[in-house]
Write a protein that binds this DNA or RNA. Structure first.
Lengths: 142, 142
DNA sequence: CTTGCTCCTGTAGTCACTACAGGATGCATG
DNA sequence: CATGCATCCTGTAGTGACTACAGGAGCAAG
């Protein structure tokens, strides 16, 4: 049974974020001392670490909570996990694709810039009537 | 001189977003008819399109506004633009790197999943004491 | 007893929008 | 001229996932 500072150190989740997770019902509520301070069991610290791992893999909090609840029912757990994981993997790959397009578009725009030029080709492209060869702004937040 | 709906169509910026941009001082305030409806000049539509282009390239609104004001003063414009552009390009490349790490970590985790398995290896990794071989959650929002 | 650390609640800010609610105006048709 | 529908207005609240205080209380060591 440790206080919130130690729980934070052990789980890698910041104190403010732990309180936020509790408030939002993302993790279970920790017990309290008589004076109202939170006390964390090993299981609760593991829960925090689990969420942190999921977040570090880029899963949304929503998905992290889903994975946590899948982990508690043994039936078909692996299948559900794989489904969520593959969906997320697809999102990541799409995002990489989007960013690579941005990268190449921006590389080209910047490559024509030179110190002392009177007309900046990148500004010119940004101001032109014709469309650039890129899509809409990236939606996914990852 | 066109109304907001037409300005939206011409610039690709949604009506709600145009009003938001005006409210926040991101673009200059449009004139109004006697009854209070906004009227947009060609220059104001070009301004909206400029911001949209920047956003589509992944620049923050802050940077987009900076680029817009750089575009108005001809001295060293190209140099300032290049600087912002290269900085942003670096961010994009870092982000791609982060996502590739996520991709490979997740690919490995998911690859061991099989339907009907009793112990899910991905859940096991998420719950283990030892650290995963990935960094912190991605910060940059792009 | 005092100092300094940790902890508490509650609120506001971040970023860049999006989504209404509730009402006014403008235009075309009957 | 009345009706109906599209378009417009303001203002507010919600999104995701936190972060950053303000203002106060508790605890342990010297």
């Amino acid at each position: 049974m440790v206080a919130i500072g130690e729980a934070s150190r052990l789980s890698g989740v910041s104190i403010e974020t732990i309180r936020y997770y509790e408030r939002e019902g993302i993790v279970s509520k920790a017990g309290r001392t008589s004076s109202g301070r939170r006390l964390f069991t090993d299981a609760e610290i593991a829960e925090l670490r689990f969420i942190k791992r999921c977040r570090d893999l880029g899963f949304s909090v929503h998905d992290a909570v889903a994975l946590k609840s899948i982990a508690r029912k043994p039936n078909d757990a692996c299948q559900s996990v794989e489904q969520l994981g593959r969906k997320h993997l697809t999102n990541i790959q799409e995002k990489i694709g989007e960013l690579r397009q941005l990268e190449s578009a921006l590389t080209e725009l910047v490559s024509n810039c030179e110190q002392g030029r009177k007309q900046c080709p990148m500004l010119h492209a940004l101001m032109s009537q014709t469309d650039l060869e890129i899509g809409e702004a990236p939606f996914s937040k990852l």
